[in-house]
Every structure is written in C-alpha cells, then in structure tokens.
Design a protein around this nucleic acid. Structure first.
Lengths: 211, 211
DNA sequence: TTGACAAAATGAACGACGTTCACTATACTG
DNA sequence: CAGTATAGTGAACGTCGTTCATTTTGTCAA
C-alpha cells in the first residue's frame, strides 16, 4: 500500500504549486507583489495551509532564488560548447549581464536581498557557489591556455566576477542612467573587454589593507 | 517681526530631529528597524506629526541616502591632497570599499534599495552623480598624466566604478564568504590593483551587444 | 459500514507596518 | 480677549507574516 508514498508525492505537488504561484506573482509584480495571502489566493487555499509546506515566506523566496541560480548555471554549462577559453569567458560575461538585465528582480533576489543571504550558510554546496565554481573553472582554463596571467586564479575569478556583478547591479538599478541610452551597450561592452584585458598581465601584490 | 522666520527655523529643527532619530535607529538596527512609529517614539511625538515634515518614509530614507553620499563625497574631496593621480585613484578605491564595509546598511540604502532609486530622477544634480563626477574627474587626471589609456574616460570611469561597486556589494552581502577570512583583504587588494592595471592599456572596441 | 484516529486545511486573531484624517490643543494676530 | 491659523494627536484603514484552536477530510481496523 503506497499510501505514504502517494502522500509524499502530493505534498511535493503542493510545494510545487506554491512555488509556481509565488514565481508567477514574482515575475509579474516583483518582490513587493508576493505575499502569503496572494499566494494562497492563487492556489485557492487558505494562508495558513502554506505553512504546512514551507517554514516561512523567506523559505519560499529562497527556493525561487535557487531556481534562479540553476538557470544561470544552465547558461554556464552551455558555454562548454565554446572551445576557445577566452572567447568562452567573454561570452560568459555577456550572458551574465544579459541574465541580470532580463531578470532584474530575480537577480536582485539572488544577490542583494538581505534575508536571502543569511539563510544558506548551512546549505552546503549552495547553487550560488556552484555557479561561481563554474566561472572560476573557466577562468582557470584561460590561465592554462596561457591567455591570462598565472596569478592566483581565485583572485582573478573574484575580480572578474565582481566587475560583472558591479556592472549588472548598476545597470539594473539604473545607476548608469546618466549615460545616453544609445551609449550604454557600448560602455558595457568596453568595460567587459577592459576587465578581460586586465587579466592578461601579472600583477604586483601590494599587501592587504582590508578587513 | 520674525515670527515666520522662527517658525521656519523650528520646522527645520523638527526635520533635523526626525532625521537624526531615523539615522540613529538606522545605524543601530538597520533598515528593518526604522519605522514611522519608532521614529515618533524616539522624538516623543505621535506618528501623524512626522507627516507634517516629510511626505513619506521613503522621503526620510532618501534624505539619509543623500547624507551618505555627502559623506562619501567628503572622503573624495580629501583625496585632492594626494598629488600623484594614480596613487590618488588607488586610495580612492580603498576608501570606497572601506566606506561600504564600514557602513553596509547605508551603502545598501544608497545603491541597492529599490524605492530609493526611483525617486531622484527629478532631483537634478543628485549627490550620487556628484560623487561619480568626482571619481570621473580623478580618472581623467590619470589619463591626462599619461598613466591610463586615452580611451573614452567615461567608459573607463564606469568600468572602474563598477568593479569597486561589485567588490563592495559582494563583500557586504558576504557573497565572498567562501574565501578564508584571512585571504579576503589580499583578494580585494589584488582585485583593485588588477583593475587599475587594466586601465593602463588601449582597448580594442568590439561592438555593442547590450540593450 | 462504522467509529476512531491522524493528517490536512481553515480562518480568525495577533502585533506590526505606512498612511490618513477628523479632531483637539497651542500659538499668533487684530 | 476673540478668532483664526498652525501644530499635534491618535484612532482607524488596509496591509503584512505568522500562529493556532478548530473543523474537515482521509485512512484503516473492527
């Protein structure tokens, strides 16, 4: 008698239904639009029911967040088709910024929302880390191929990632609004190129002054 | 009779009292801690009164935000004492990241909080823009001194700023937590150096593909 | 089929939030 | 001192995330 099993499946279905509803609202109306009552309305259950399947709203948003990282990671895996590692990392940069621009709310959720960040300390092997890991791998391959300086790959990866993240979040938040609309693409492209070129040189290490 | 004037002064005093209270709470308990009722409690007035002096909570937070930019701008002006433009921009980078790390909530308010961003579209000559302007000026001086490539200075400034912002926000959000504590400073310092070095070369422009 | 027990779902309630507004209290003026 | 303009009040509205006593539904042995 697979009663237990069926119940487990139903519970999983319910979790998916809730997440789907949350995602739909999130996609249409952003973070502000998502509330437990609205989710409950959408799936035609009472608000209290949701708490049988998720600990809190934060828990739900965290799942959406993971989903975002999985999408990003999916894009990254596609990149393995590109054989030239420099070309690959170039395209990866464009993918990254494009992903952020096309899913600004999601990107924000993934990288900026306070409550989300705190959570996954215990969630070992977080999707976020996998995504960075893949990126670092691609950076390493550039080094191996002799295109990037042999400096510490992790440092290089962090620096490049930071540049991508910086550009993406400035763009999303419209902090670059002072640029004429038609120049934005150009500036971004050049900024990316600029960072990749910077990776080509050996750097003198000047000592630690932070933290 | 300076009755009108005194009233104006009193209103200004009240605005300052409210802002001070908001800032105190913000500093101690962050964005989440600030509520109209808590501010009202702190200044010993009723919640409704605040609305005689500020349009909304958002309005208040926007003022805190401006205050933050003024502090940052103050740091930037100090930099004019440094005569070597490359040394100056190097220190500016460290100042920037340090400012973010020392005032994470404020930095977030300044650059990341959604509601804040929207507002100052009409507020011409925003403090934020002044801060970027000063930075761009310093970048220009590096170019003039022949240390940076002669490429479009605005692009260069945006690229460097993005890198600083990226590093800062990753650090604040603890996204670099996978790095051993003792390596963080090193990585940041090298990432900064890496970006400055990148600025030294002429870059081939590869065309626009964003937006 | 029925009755007992467990699981699932409910929705009112709690304390918080930003904001509004009819009202009262205070300060100023003629 | 009367009358008016200004300042301040605090209850109320509708929202939020969350909890929990209660009811409904589902399961299975007798």
């Amino acid at each position: 008698m697979g009663v237990k099993e069926r119940k487990k499946r139903n519970a999983q279905k319910m979790r998916q239904r809730i997440l789907k509803a949350a995602m739909d609202i999130f996609a249409k109306e952003g973070y502000e639009g998502v509330s437990m009552r609205r989710i409950a309305d959408k799936i035609e259950y009472s608000p209290g029911t949701i708490y049988r399947y998720f600990e809190s709203k934060c828990d739900i948003m965290l799942q959406l967040c993971y989903h975002g990282f999985e999408r990003l990671l999916g894009l990254q895996f596609e990149l393995d088709k590109i054989t030239n590692p420099v070309e690959r990392i170039k395209v990866e940069g464009r993918y990254y910024v494009t992903f952020a621009l096309e899913n600004p709310e999601l990107y924000e959720l993934m990288f900026a929302t306070r409550e989300i960040i705190k959570q996954p300390a215990d969630a070992e092997e977080s999707v976020a880390r996998k995504s960075f890991g893949k990126f670092a791998e691609h950076v390493q391959q550039c080094i191996d191929a002799g295109f990037f300086s042999g400096g510490d790959p992790e440092t290089l990866a962090v620096a490049l990632w930071a540049a991508l993240h910086g550009l993406s979040s400035l763009l999303i938040k419209d902090q670059l609004r002072f640029l004429p609309e038609e120049r934005v693409g150009e500036v971004v492209e050049r900024a990316l190129a600029f960072n990749l070129r910077g990776a080509g040189k050996e750097l003198a290490f000047t000592g630690s002054e932070f933290r």
